[in-house]
Design a protein around this nucleic acid. Structure first.
Lengths: 340, 340
DNA sequence: TAACCTTACTCAAACGTTTGCGTGTGGATA
DNA sequence: TATCCACACGCAAACGTTTGAGTAAGGTTA
């Protein structure tokens, strides 16, 4: 195990002081040309790289952005990460990704760990459990220590910070409108339980669309799915002998699961039942028939989140705090599942 | 912006020395019960958390594992990350994830950045470009500085380090055997260009299976796809008027793309053409028909990789170096696309 | 030749920890 | 009252870096 080259080592070898080496590498005018060149040559030869840890300690900043997301094995979140990375790399920031696995405790642990020196600020989408518990002390604490936080997608209204969201309600309304405009009248919705903010918002959008079209909503057309991992049974029971001509699903999994069940029932998509999903993932794209869906533009969310965060990180301390909420436009991607 | 609580601050407030505070928090016998309690109470009240950066600098280790993967928006890699996180968290390690985006340069940058203080060791799957260029100096350099590296999936034979792979050849052979055992005789393969190690290995497995069954391989049954993003055209051209009864695809995307094209051609799966893919992702699972596939057990790979790395990190310096290559068993998941 | 200026360095503090060793205080012992 | 010991704490160095201030040597000016 070769030991790492440090300023100290170079200084010793060249028989100068550490500060001379440091300044030489920075091309300081204080140091003679001769010494500068010697030092640089030596540093290059031995592949000197300044120690980030020491720099972080000295500068009291890490040039690192922490991302905490509910799930790592999830297409939407990974696209957001992609967006964050893009901006971060441009601006010379590193990115640390942690997943809370939808657990409140793990979210707290990750946040505390990253907050104690590893990152300068955070981009986060809160865990399901956190939304359920409504306990945000860890996030508030982090912010009160002066670390900026940007919330995205699954946000918390009560918290005062930057936020990046899509207009879930509007997206859902547009999706439902699309079904209505195709002549569908018996539109079911597959959604989540109410404490998931985005689920609730999307349900509201669906209801609003119906209202505008003067179609009374029916309780038996709404399925609030409890256990995502087991949605197949719930959806299957729900669709049994149900007289519908369209389905709006608040995520991709619900949409394809419904499509599969309809297929088994011998119903044709889109002729018997049209389907619109949410989230433009690979499933919707590659399914047969391909699924019409509301795109959340995950990468764009990541880009905007990263920009907001970096702006805060690099802001003058004496400009007054100001928090923005960026709303990203959704777009409806029309595919085979709603072609009539 | 409240300033962070440090030992120094506590010391000043309580009018004792920094070392006393540090020792008190560690319950050192050197410090009186009284002082210990006072310090702890104060620390708790002000929510003191030791600064990781300072600790890392002092201990010359970060308790952090760096993962570098070719793509972040990729189901297989994210499952691997999931496995790594599991083990890492158990053992008190943090995980930093960076994606190389299949770019050699970004791989080098990421590795250097993480190596200069941010991580103690690495788990990595090399970028496509790196495999093509065959330039591994950055990895060798990292290792020569005493930082352990574990390679997984897309590994490099020449490098002497721990490795975790699946037996790609065997997996492919089992998959092909499965098709042969169903009575298929005209089996096409959709694979990658040769410099992608796993693609080549899988192709070899396919050829081996044919040989065992005494079926001559045909050049026109092999498609080496250049441009993954544009595989649809390549596959479509390839399948045009081709007389085959089965397809073995070396990844999920190729498999579903082929399935979609066959569907358009009016061919039935599995009756006209059976399909086996590679990688057990959501696409294979949810497609209609669901696709038989070779599971790579991504999470298991992550778990094993993390264990190998942590073993190295925590090894006695005087035990001789020894490098292992762990081969994870693949398993064939039979689904509708090969039911006869 | 004394005063001053340049040049080319070195010193030392700081970032927040940990920890071996030194030390002042007080009480007990001789 | 001199000696010793335990106790409870402080000092200082170290991790690797940056940087303002200090300084020695040599040259220039008056």
């Amino acid at each position: 195990m070769k030991q790492k080259v440090t300023l100290k080592l170079i200084a010793k070898e060249l028989d100068v002081s550490i500060s001379t080496v440091s300044k030489a590498l920075k091309d300081s005018a204080e140091i003679s040309m001769d010494t500068r060149q010697k030092v640089k040559a030596f540093a290059k030869l031995y592949n000197y790289k300044p120690n980030n840890i020491a720099l972080s300690l000295k500068n009291r900043k890490t040039k690192t952005i922490g991302i905490i997301i509910p799930e790592i094995v999830h297409h939407f979140f990974t696209t957001v990460i992609g967006g964050v990375e893009k901006v971060a790399n441009e601006k010379g920031y590193n990115v640390i990704i942690c997943s809370s696995n939808n657990s409140f405790d793990k979210e707290v642990i990750n946040l505390e760990m990253l907050a104690s020196g590893s990152a300068d600020g955070f981009i986060l989408s809160v865990a399901k459990e956190t939304q359920q518990k409504r306990d945000y002390h860890h996030i508030e604490e982090t912010m009160s220590q002066g670390m900026p936080v940007v919330l995205f997608d699954r946000i918390i209204d009560e918290l005062v910070c930057d936020k990046v969201i899509i207009d879930d309600g509007k997206g859902a309304q547009v999706a439902t409108n699309h079904l209505l405009s195709l002549g569908c009248k018996k539109i079911a919705i597959l959604t989540t339980v109410d404490y998931i903010s985005v689920g609730k918002l999307r349900t509201n959008g669906y209801l609003r669309a119906l209202r505008v079209y003067d179609i009374p909503f029916r309780d038996d057309y709404i399925l609030k799915i409890e256990d995502v991992d087991n949605c197949e049974t719930e959806i299957s029971d729900f669709l049994e002998n149900k007289d519908i001509d369209a389905i709006f699903a608040v995520n991709e999994l619900f949409a394809v699961t419904a499509a599969k069940i309809l297929d088994k029932q011998g119903k044709k998509i889109p002729n018997d039942v049209a389907i619109v999903g949410f989230t433009d993932g690979i499933l919707s794209k590659h399914f047969i028939p391909s699924l019409t869906t509301v795109s959340q533009h995950g990468e764009e969310m990541g880009i905007r989140s990263a920009r907001l965060l970096i702006d805060k990180l690099e802001a003058d301390d004496n400009v007054p705090e100001e928090y923005k909420t960026v709303i990203i436009d959704t777009s409806l991607i029309q595919r085979e599942s709603t072609k009539k």
